[in-house]
Computed example of a mutant assay.
Amino acid sequence: MTLKEQLSDDMKSALRAKDRERLAVLRMLLSAVRQREIDERIELDDAGVLALIDKMVKQRRDAETQYRDAGRGELADAEAAEVVVLETYLPDALSDQELADMVAAAVTQSGAQSMQDMGKVMGILKPQVQGRADMGAVSAAVKNRLG
């Protein structure tokens, strides 16, 4: 079962269970998937859907921070609740050691010697860590390794 099929099935289950919050998040997510597919005239695979979910989680976290800073706790709580639902579809996060091991393997595989080769290493790592690690942390780990 693809991730899109799972999302659709979960949306139907949330509809039957009358779980309004979960239903709203799943509808929003499926709508974003369809919109991306229409805009780019492609069929998203699981990696594409994961990238979209990762982006949506990041947006929700930013919005939550901004709402909390503005003293709008109820809106921040709503964003946090959406993050919880979205994160259920992301794979388990990588530990620092797992990330370091993946970076070391990618550096070896690409034959990178200096910071100029960072793009090669990131190209290898991005599909492997999508949704499992923050790309900023991955970039920092690669810079650390190459620098």
Rank of each mutant, 00 (worst) to 15 (best):
M1W: 03
T2E: 09
T2N: 08
Q6T: 01
L7R: 01
D9G: 00
A14H: 04
R16W: 07
R16H: 13
D19R: 08
R20C: 06
E21K: 15
E21N: 10
E21W: 07
R22H: 14
R22Q: 10
R22V: 09
R22Y: 05
A24D: 10
A24M: 13
L26N: 00
R27L: 12
R27T: 02
M28E: 11
L29F: 01
L30W: 00
L30K: 00
S31A: 06
R34E: 11
Q35C: 12
Q35W: 06
R36P: 03
E43I: 10
D45K: 13
D46T: 01
A47R: 10
G48R: 01
A51I: 03
L52I: 00
K55P: 06
V57P: 07
V57N: 12
Q59L: 15
R60C: 10
A63G: 07
A63Y: 05
E64W: 02
T65H: 07
Q66V: 12
Y67M: 10
G71R: 08
R72M: 03
R72C: 07
E74K: 02
L75A: 09
D77V: 00
A81Q: 12
A81C: 10
V85F: 09
L86M: 15
E87D: 14
Y89S: 07
L90I: 09
P91S: 06
A93E: 13
L94F: 04
E98V: 07
L99G: 02
D101K: 12
D101L: 13
V103S: 10
A105P: 02
A106S: 03
T108R: 15
S110Q: 04
S110V: 00
Q113P: 00
Q113I: 04
Q113S: 11
Q113R: 14
S114L: 14
M115C: 12
M115A: 15
Q116H: 08
K120I: 11
V121K: 03
G123E: 02
I124K: 07
L125V: 03
L125H: 01
V129Q: 10
Q130W: 03
G131D: 02
G136D: 11
A137W: 02
A137T: 09
S139V: 05
R145Q: 13
R145G: 08
